[in-house]
Design a protein around this nucleic acid. Sequence first.
DNA 1: TTGTAGGCGTTATCAA
DNA 2: TTGATAACGCCTACAA
Lengths: 362, 362
Amino acid sequence: MAPEKKTRKRKANKAPSIYDVAKEARVSVFTVSAVVNGKSHVGKALKQRVDAAIQKLNYRPNLLARSLAARRTHTIGIVVPDISNPFFPLVVRGAEDAAQKHGYNILLCDSDDRPEREEECLEVLMAKRVDGILLTKAPGTFRPALRQLIDDAKIPFVLLMRTYPDLTKDAVLTDDYKGAYEAVCQLARAGHRRIGLMGGPMTISNGRERWKGFRDALEANGLTHEPELVIQGDYRIESGYRGGHALLSRSPDGIYVANYLMTVGLLKAAEEMGMRCPEDFGLVSFDDYPWLAVFRPRLTTVELPKYQIGFEATEMLLARIKNEPTRGGTIKLAPELHVRESCGFQLRPGKNLADVRNEARG
Amino acid sequence: MAPEKKTRKRKANKAPSIYDVAKEARVSVFTVSAVVNGKSHVGKALKQRVDAAIQKLNYRPNLLARSLAARRTHTIGIVVPDISNPFFPLVVRGAEDAAQKHGYNILLCDSDDRPEREEECLEVLMAKRVDGILLTKAPGTFRPALRQLIDDAKIPFVLLMRTYPDLTKDAVLTDDYKGAYEAVCQLARAGHRRIGLMGGPMTISNGRERWKGFRDALEANGLTHEPELVIQGDYRIESGYRGGHALLSRSPDGIYVANYLMTVGLLKAAEEMGMRCPEDFGLVSFDDYPWLAVFRPRLTTVELPKYQIGFEATEMLLARIKNEPTRGGTIKLAPELHVRESCGFQLRPGKNLADVRNEARG
DNA sequence: TTGTAGGCGTTATCAA
DNA sequence: TTGATAACGCCTACAA
């Protein structure tokens, strides 16, 4: 028996494949592939036939199949603690813009800063064969099996906002030490002496950095470090609220809060306690937002370049993916102090702080 | 010549495949597949051998290959105008939670409300064979070729926040008409008579709905509709800022703003013009956020259940994907009025509005 | 219950 | 320049 030529089933009301195009144009699939990808040189005539067939069938390559064959998905994963924390949307937007510029897409995951969920996210991202991962590391270290998986996959990671040296040195951070240092100096400059800290988790690198900046700034300003004025939160509103109650009851005259959500919680606590900012306490917060310029109290903040973080991290990741001779490593972006009323800068030296407060009250 | 048995190359320092597991466990790939997917009944002994092999090799199925074969990616696409608009993160979070619950992931795209970008997003999502798409439609209609693609792909869509009947009736919306109506009624209740609108684009369904609600509420309260007090923006800060300057210069005593970002812009304009809220104009805004309860002016808002929008839309989409006998159709979620000081409710009837204003000024 | 072999839609290798 | 055909890694009839 003569071996019949293998025939592909003709499409039955499903999306056309490269075979359908090849048949329509009376060429081989190779030729179609070459035309579609602009590789190899295809003769004018053939190319036109192929283009016509593509047009006629409204053909679009199946990127899944392409990814499987080419071992490249043109998709990157991004794991953030919580996209609904207003800090991250701009980071993600920066990442998306950079990715899109290079023809990549973004698979988004929220870890809620929980190690188990983070692990699930990473597993599925790797199983879906993303080309690289942007990670804002949750507290804790990877389990060995996961670590093994990551090593086997040889997939590049770039860290966002938080270090995790065991995994990689490639990271885009902000200079949190400096930011916190400047925040506290601003409070000191405004005349505050008993300065409290509503800080982040010490299990997170930037929680530690911000704490160090706070501590060193106290010292540099000749202020004493009072342990009871230091509270550790988890960057969520609720912890800022509870911490705010505790902290404010100890009457600090200035407070540095390590992120925006905790500031919101703390202000709620202040209100419940009938304490006003900046009349009763000065405040400097991390993260700035457009609306902070129009609401009162107008917050003095240390702005972090969120968009840039996402954008540069993605550029770095793509460079790794494409194996470009890259300066990877750790990038530290500069924070920027936005001075507004909440720090109490109106209360300048020369005027006694207590007096000004009484005026404000009266 | 005896046909040699087809042999798969052994893994050379790359992720183990189902073949490697099969070899290790001395079974066929079918058995491995059956064990991994929990289908079919596999004998105790074999199952144990397979499990051991999986463990030993730290095997994870390649989801790309699975998707190609099973024609199901367990990934859904979501297209929003801009994830950095604070309205959308919670929507996306709701979608992610629902998706994750069912073992799905999310591919995120920003359209910037530009039709060309929206088209690119949709094309690539479909090319990557997502199982379904959540879409916040940009203004304008689809080009025929895109429409063709969508029809050919037979992929389910669920619309978010904005209708587009030509595509599908499946949508999760908010009752924007009612929300706007109530917002304006609240302004009227607070004693305002010349009420202005800082609205959204009339090219977007909810822009029209909110406008209608505004108009009808004016009429229901016996107020006249003054065209010069109606301004159309695009839901961005900048348009609220420009519109705010224009609108405030016409001295309305109450303003309804159709979204949060435009409110931020309008408040900035007010500040530049030296006008205070609520003393100089009452304000009701759409969208609520946790921080609006702690900053001044405390905004009266019409809250939209953002998280629920994303969550329910995803549930609906997944029902379609799984071909469940579903009540699809259009869901309208109820908005919720949060009354705070910005609307001027302190200025109750009985007290003359102008008088109260003078008090506040004095 | 378990194995064999073909298909999913590309890319990539090697001849022609 | 082109074409035939084997990967890519998994699922799934159909057989045994």
